[in-house]
Design a protein around this nucleic acid. Sequence first.
DNA 1: TACATAATATGTACTTACAACACATTATTA
DNA 2: TAATAATGTGTTGTAAGTACATATTATGTA
Lengths: 244, 244
Amino acid sequence: MAKSIGLKTAELEKISHLDYFNIALSVDCVIFAYDEKELKVLLIKSDLEEFSGMYSLLGDLVRLDEDLDAASYRILRERTGMEDVFLEQVHTFGSINRHPSGRVVTTAYYSLIDVKHHNLRLNNNELHWHSVKGIKKMAFDHKTILDTCLNRLREQSMEHPVVFNLLPEKFSLRELQELYEAILSVELDRRNFRKKIAIKDWLIDLNQMEEDVPHRPGKLYKLKPEFRKKTNRKKSSENNIVSV
Amino acid sequence: MAKSIGLKTAELEKISHLDYFNIALSVDCVIFAYDEKELKVLLIKSDLEEFSGMYSLLGDLVRLDEDLDAASYRILRERTGMEDVFLEQVHTFGSINRHPSGRVVTTAYYSLIDVKHHNLRLNNNELHWHSVKGIKKMAFDHKTILDTCLNRLREQSMEHPVVFNLLPEKFSLRELQELYEAILSVELDRRNFRKKIAIKDWLIDLNQMEEDVPHRPGKLYKLKPEFRKKTNRKKSSENNIVSV
DNA sequence: TACATAATATGTACTTACAACACATTATTA
DNA sequence: TAATAATGTGTTGTAAGTACATATTATGTA
């Protein structure tokens, strides 16, 4: 019996497969996008009888020869054709009975993509964008996973410049505000919103105007390049001290 | 080949064990305590040749019949004798080569315990408290795991009343401030610290005084019972809106 | 061409939190 | 009883958060 993870190779070989190696590991991706002033998530109809008619997240088992993070990137690439996408691990769900076919522990990631991006190609007719607000039930524990990732997105969106991954490169402040309102499910005061964004100093004024809008066009902005990293996961070496 | 996690039972049985069921799943616990004005972590000497002389976190493989969270509670109970302890999942580490003996993906938890608690019994002479500041190298990727958990603790400690799990039931404001200073590695202004704590309204004034201190005794406080939950992990149903 | 419309753009007053900083009080101990 | 060492408290300036109103500009219509 292995009391610590510090297993010698010989010990590891002796461990019963039935005891320890029947747990499968999967990743599930909560792929968010923003379209028609609503936050959307990419779902597929579940192919399990137990969940017939219900939708599930996009996931797959982790392969023996791929990193956990790589597995989630692979799902995203296979399903959407997108590379270099914002993707961040959120939580691992490991209840015994979360999967009806066996013991499957899953690590959830959330991703933010531009629904208008020219590389976006959904690989499957069964894949559809669903308004996050309208989703009640899902297959497995995927509703819990979705809610957990949505909460993470809400937390992150205030602190870090992540939501720009949901927008095209150029956008107006109105579009940005509508996006925040969709994510947070609140209405925001325009003047205070603009002040808060200005303080954060994330944006570059492009000195261009919106076109093809049926009203006075607004200025266009883009995210400063230094914030265009695709993940904001803290490196372990960074000490982010918060002052008391 | 399983394209989605929605595997039918028959499909799942056909999956090659070599491809998918050779990934073992473990949990590792970063058990923090506070003693002699320093933040400590409970470590054990690694029993692997590759890491001889190095220390590692406390962990074990997850059993087929136990929830992921239950596995981390089990480690904690087996190693410290403590029940009802603050424990929270932080991150899952899944690099291919993180474990020299095979593919082991590990989910890290962090725990906060009172080093003076009467139930605390270290089960093993090899278990020792180490000052977090002094730790340079560890076995496996455990230094990275430790740093990640320390960062999480730092974030949480400002927002949520978690650090009280590191203190005895009754404590003075000086002790609390010294604890925050140890966790954050900063010096804090006494007046501003007390003001901030007062605003949070976490504490009850016990109308008791410190004893056996070699100076003017300070007032004793305890945490309000409504904050004495052992985990502050958000339930997925909670919508914590942050206003822009 | 001018007028009504609808959205952009911006500023002020109030309140609340944050940061820097000094002095009186109370046990202890020498 | 005097010196020491820590507790306990308040003010002021600065920065951010919140509530709120008016002028401006392009569009579209009469």
